[in-house]
């Protein structure tokens, strides 16, 4: 069964991440927070596409649902300051 830790590893292998957290323990539904400097200047659609690309075929075959929020390191700091 796919674990959230495996998904974290897959994403981090394809994308340089400053912070990554994946939750979900049923093997099919996951929630991810991904912070990457590579997101800078990209639209939200492009940022999510980069995460999907890192996951490649697993996204089609194994993962039923991946809900995600993406941040640049700067946005992440601001979000942290707010919370």
């Amino acid at each position: 069964m796919l674990t959230s830790t495996q998904i974290e590893t897959y994403i981090a292998q394809g994308l340089s991440c400053e912070h990554i957290a994946v939750m979900g323990d049923d093997g099919q539904h996951f929630e991810a927070v991904v912070v990457s400097p590579e997101f800078a200047g990209k639209s939200m659609v492009q940022q999510h596409q980069m995460v999907y690309k890192a996951l490649g075929d697993r996204m089609r075959a194994e993962i039923h649902a991946l809900s995600m929020r993406t941040f640049t390191p700067e946005q992440w700091k601001q979000a942290g300051a707010k919370n």
């Binding site: 939200m44 659609v45 999510h48 809900s67 995600m68 929020r69």
Partner: peptide, 11 residues
Amino acid sequence: EFVGGADIMRE
């Protein structure tokens, strides 16, 4: 134009 999926729609 493609806007996004459910997560982007929510944001």
